[in-house]
Design a protein around this nucleic acid. Structure first.
Lengths: 133, 133
DNA sequence: CGCAATAGTCACTATAAGAGAGTTGGTCTA
DNA sequence: TAGACCAACTCTCTTATAGTGACTATTGCG
């Protein structure tokens, strides 16, 4: 009940907490926050550091995080362009909750994968043609 | 450094932890885990409880969670069909990390929204035509 | 018979992500 | 001089996923 009360708002589609949560749980957000936890980084650093992220998704996610006040973007008057991204104090408070989820996943990945294999096996068995039945 | 070591694998695009994390951070997953924390639920209950989720996304997410071993699906031999979804013991261990993220978001939503307003205001000022400059 | 219940499935549309090339201004080298 | 390089994006088109809303199957009831 106490927990349900806690979640009451996020169950409404238009809840601002819901909107914020959607972005915080976003796959790129999780990785970028984790990386910036180590200290300020430049765009290309982040791009190289997060395997599989496109320039577009990186830009988009960084802008979103900046807008949410979780990271700061420092533009230096240089050529080639130099831009640094860093966690804000607010952003730093998010590190621990996100880390907890990542740690959970790392700790339980074996069980998850075993469950997947078992599920897939059950699915395969169910679709096997029945000869002689 | 210790944290970076912790994250080393998730920064590779093909890392299984990454894949699992993507689904765990998914917006519907977060909400459904939270709801099932209160006890077993039926499909229609879940649909009504999570504002904005379509039948399709609900089905898809539930299947995915079941495959990951986080929830169980119990089919009763009844008509109309009766199916119950419940957290598995593994799924229950995920509640706390997910709750932590939700609680963080609820606690800081004011700051996030203020940051967004400020960001939008800065963006608007920057695009205002300069007359007489 | 028509309607209700439940848990989906299905086909099409809309939206977001992905892919990869282009842009800007300065510096350096052949 | 032309071309290449640098970094942080922007842009356009393609692909993938989410969203929309109707349909499905079975039984029971009025």
């Amino acid at each position: 009940m106490n927990d349900l009360k806690q979640y009451a708002d996020v169950y409404y589609a238009d809840c601002p907490v819901r909107r914020a949560l959607d972005r915080i749980g976003d796959k790129w957000t999780v990785l970028l926050i984790g990386m910036l936890e180590e200290g300020p980084r430049r765009f290309s650093d982040l791009r190289r550091g997060v395997g599989g992220i496109s320039q577009k998704m990186l830009t988009q996610t960084l802008r979103s995080l900046e807008r949410d006040g979780l990271i700061s973007r420092t533009l230096y008057a240089e050529v080639p362009p130099r831009v640094e991204y860093a966690l804000t104090p607010l952003g730093e408070t998010l590190c621990e909750p996100i880390s907890a989820v990542v740690r959970w996943t790392e700790a339980h990945i074996g069980e998850v994968m075993a469950a997947q294999a078992a599920y897939d096996h059950r699915a395969q068995v169910k679709t096997t043609p029945i000869d002689g039945a």
